[in-house]
Amino acid sequence: MTLMLKSRGAEVRLEGVGKRYGAVQAVKPLDLAIEGGTLVTLLGPSGCGKTTLLRMIAGLEQPTEGRLLIGGRDVTLLPPGERNVSMVFQSYALFPHMSVLDNVAYGLVSSGLRKRDAHAKAELALETVGLKGFGGRLPSEMSGGQQQRVAVARALVLEPEVLLFDEPLSNLDARLRRSMREEIRALQQRLGLTVVYVTHDQSEALAVSDKIVVMRNAEIAQVGTPAELYTQPNSVFVATFMGEANHVRGHIEAVRGDTAEVVLDATRLELPVRGLSAGPVDIVIRPEAIRVVDMASVEAMPATVSRATYMGSHSEYYLSTPLGDLFALAPDRLQRRVPGEAVGVQFEVEGVVLVRP
Rank of each mutant, 00 (worst) to 15 (best):
G18C: 05
R20W: 15
Y21I: 14
G22H: 10
V24E: 13
V24W: 05
V24H: 08
A26H: 11
A26P: 07
K28G: 09
L30W: 05
D31P: 00
D31Q: 04
D31E: 06
D31V: 02
L32I: 10
L32Q: 02
L32M: 08
L32H: 01
L32F: 08
L32A: 05
A33H: 07
A33G: 03
G36F: 01
G37S: 06
G37P: 02
T38K: 15
L39E: 03
V40M: 12
V40K: 06
T41S: 14
T41Y: 05
L42A: 04
L42E: 02
L42F: 14
L43F: 12
G44W: 05
P45T: 13
S46G: 04
G47N: 11
C48G: 07
C48M: 07
G49T: 09
G49P: 06
G49M: 08
T51Q: 14
T52S: 11
T52D: 01
L53E: 03
M56A: 06
M56R: 05
A58I: 14
Q62E: 12
P63H: 11
E65H: 09
E65K: 09
G66E: 05
R67H: 04
R67E: 07
R67Q: 10
L69N: 05
I70S: 01
I70N: 00
I70D: 00
G71E: 13
G71D: 13
G72I: 06
G72C: 13
D74N: 07
V75I: 05
T76S: 11
T76D: 14
P79E: 05
P79S: 08
P79A: 11
P80M: 12
P80W: 09
E82K: 15
E82A: 11
R83T: 05
V85I: 10
S86L: 08
M87R: 01
M87L: 14
F89P: 05
F89T: 13
Q90F: 14
S91V: 09
Y92F: 14
L94E: 03
L94H: 01
F95A: 00
P96E: 03
P96R: 09
H97V: 00
H97E: 02
S99Y: 02
V100F: 04
V100P: 05
D102C: 00
L108Q: 06
V109A: 10
S110E: 15
S110F: 14
S111Q: 13
L113P: 00
K115I: 12
R116S: 12
R116G: 08
D117E: 15
D117H: 09
H119Y: 10
H119G: 08
A120H: 14
A120G: 13
A120R: 15
E123L: 12
E123N: 11
L124P: 04
L124N: 10
L126N: 06
E127R: 14
